[in-house]
């Protein structure tokens, strides 16, 4: 964790009139795992989508590996400094996994994993297939290589989605509440997979309501509310003695729900 890999400074984002991010400063270090917690609508998803530049910030700066990719112009508005192909390349290095999997339903599991490496990274099919097979083994789904997404359970789909993202060998993984749409009995298998990614020293920004994951795996917990970061710190401290009343209120609610 010597160098910052992703650095956001004063980032604002809007959806039309809605002011979703209201000045976020966040540095993600190499290999660091950050658990992003907070109520629904607090801006966690928007923050992840902004980091991947699926959402373009209105104000603020973003750097990736020390290089500025979004800057502020004279009028204080954000400007993406990447051309189209550079933006595509950037996205291969900052992977995102979505709450609702977003697998390609017309392609087999294997094809889902091979598509982007062949098209974007320019790997030949055999190499891409071999790598995909390794990843499917890692997430425990080697025997599903030829299955169609529609035939998988929610947990299996999400593990495929994780493998698809890992196939690009990203430096950063953004996980957007990836267990929220799952049946309770399949949440465990996805969390185990998340831990495997953390062990690969891929930096992770994980929006989650899974406090056990946050406690066991995260290096830092960041609490967001109303488009801002309210508080952040190491899990032990954040969970045991949060400083801000809003953090305390949120944790009380979510931890009580988890134990009852």
């Amino acid at each position: 964790m010597d160098k910052p890999v992703l650095d956001l400074a004063g980032v604002h984002a809007h959806y039309g009139e809605f002011h979703a991010l209201r000045g976020v400063d966040l540095t993600l270090w190499r290999g660091e795992v950050i658990a992003l917690i907070g109520p629904s609508g607090s801006g966690k998803s928007t923050l992840l989508r902004t980091a991947n530049l699926l959402v373009t910030p209105t104000h603020g700066r973003i750097s990736f590996e020390g290089r500025e990719i979004v800057r502020e112009n004279g009028a204080g508005r954000s400007e993406v400094l990447l051309r189209d192909h550079q933006l595509n390349e950037y996205r291969t290095r900052v992977g995102i996994v979505f709450q609702h999997f977003n697998l390609f339903p017309h392609l087999s599991v294997m094809e889902n994993l091979v598509l982007a490496p062949t098209l974007v990274l320019g790997l030949d099919r055999d190499t891409a297939t071999a790598r995909a097979m390794e990843l499917l083994k890692t997430v425990g789904l080697a025997e599903k290589a030829d299955a169609m997404p529609g035939d998988l359970s929610g947990g299996q789909k999400q593990r495929v989605a994780i493998a698809r993202s890992l196939a690009m060998e990203p430096e950063v993984m953004l996980l957007d509440e990836i267990t929220s749409a799952l049946d309770p009995e399949t949440v465990g298998e996805v969390i185990r997979t998340m831990k495997l990614i953390a062990e690969r020293h891929v930096a992770m920004l994980v929006a989650t309501h899974e406090m056990d994951f946050a406690r066991e795996v995260a290096d830092r917990i960041v609490f967001m509310d109303e488009g801002r970061i309210v508080e952040s710190g190491p899990p032990a401290q954040m969970l045991a003695e949060p400083q801000e009343p809003r953090t305390r209120l949120f944790l009380d609610r979510i931890l009580r729900r988890a134990t009852t």
Binding site: N52, L54, D84, H85, N88, E89, Y90, R91, T92, G95, I96, F98, H100, N102, L103, F104, L115, A116, L119, V120, L121, R164, S165, M168
Partner: peptide, 16 residues
């Protein structure tokens, strides 16, 4: 939109 997001987030160009 979610399929576009998934493809674009993997670095696929608009055309691909």
């Amino acid at each position: 939109r979610s399929q576009v997001d998934a493809a674009r987030s993997l670095g696929l160009s608009k055309l691909d």
